[in-house]
Computed example of a mutant assay.
Amino acid sequence: MKAMTLANWITLFRIFSLPLILAFLAQYEKGDEMNQPDEKFRAGSFIFFLLAALSDGLDGYLARNCGQKSKLGAILDPLADKLLLFVMLFSLATINASKIAKIPLWLPLLIASRDLLLLLGLLYFKAAHKEIEIHPHWTGKVATFSSFTLIGFSLLGTSFLSAISVYLCALFVIASTLVYFFRGIKYILDQVGRSVPSTPKKG
């Protein structure tokens, strides 16, 4: 199977579109500071972000249904998603532009904390030489979808919808964290239970 499939090229587009989106935002912020915002830059950032977000579903569809799964894609796809999500959230939390709905900084910090906890958990199981399969939970998928929706609302400057999306995203980030935490605890308890030898009954 070829490493550079069409799905992987689409994933690379998602990665390389990020600097362009940031350049558009920087130019828009610069113009806004001089009270001469150029809406073409804000529109460009939204359009390329929308294309990048849609490409996430497209490369996943090609990988699952068109025989384009690859080891490279398994690495690139989650990397592209995390880069797009975190960089955009932090950028929109620190930008100063009148027509962009600013995202509170605590939200990307919350998401980063969740992912750090998950990473530490995986490192723990790896250090303990325990194999554990990670099955994505629907709460995590909703949190990701809410995050992308929030970024879109922020770029469009819809403050009300952006505010709703912030708390909806935070709710599902916390919910997914708890789900994975209790999954890890259950796995540890199951392993302990299996390792304890059963006491034979006296007849």
Rank of each mutant, 00 (worst) to 15 (best):
H135P: 00
N35T: 05
L110H: 05
L54N: 07
K202F: 12
T199C: 04
K141E: 08
Y124R: 10
A23S: 10
P108F: 05
K130H: 13
N96L: 03
V173G: 03
T199E: 11
S146M: 12
H137N: 15
G60K: 07
A74K: 15
A53Q: 06
V87W: 05
I10G: 09
M88C: 05
P200I: 01
A53V: 13
S45K: 08
Y28G: 03
H129Y: 11
R114L: 00
I164A: 06
W106H: 07
K130M: 13
T11P: 04
G60D: 07
E131I: 13
G121M: 10
V173M: 06
S146D: 14
G193C: 04
G31M: 02
M4Y: 09
T5A: 08
Y180F: 13
T199N: 03
P104M: 08
G31A: 01
L79D: 09
W9C: 05
D77F: 07
S154T: 04
I103G: 11
V87K: 08
I188W: 02
S154G: 09
L58H: 03
I21L: 11
L79Q: 01
T199G: 01
M4K: 01
S98K: 15
L110Q: 10
N35R: 13
A53K: 02
M34R: 12
S70L: 05
G157H: 02
S198I: 15
W106T: 02
L18I: 15
Q191C: 07
M1H: 08
R194P: 00
A52N: 04
D38P: 00
L189Q: 14
L117G: 06
K130C: 12
I174S: 11
L120E: 09
V87I: 15
P136N: 07
K69V: 03
K40R: 15
L79I: 14
P108T: 15
F172D: 10
L85E: 13
L120C: 14
S176P: 07
L155C: 10
K102A: 04
K40W: 00
A7S: 14
K126Q: 12
I111H: 12
P136F: 04
L58W: 05
F16E: 03
L119M: 15
C66Q: 10
G193M: 00
Q27N: 14
T144P: 01
M88K: 01
I185S: 09
L22T: 11
L51Q: 08
R183E: 14
L189R: 14
E131R: 15
M34V: 12
K69A: 13
F24I: 01
R194N: 08
I21K: 02
G140K: 11
P37I: 01
I151C: 01
L20W: 07
E33C: 02
Y28L: 00
S198P: 00
Y124A: 10
G152Y: 02
K102I: 08
Y180L: 04
A3V: 03
F181Q: 02
P136C: 07
F41R: 01
A112Q: 01
P78S: 08
I10M: 11
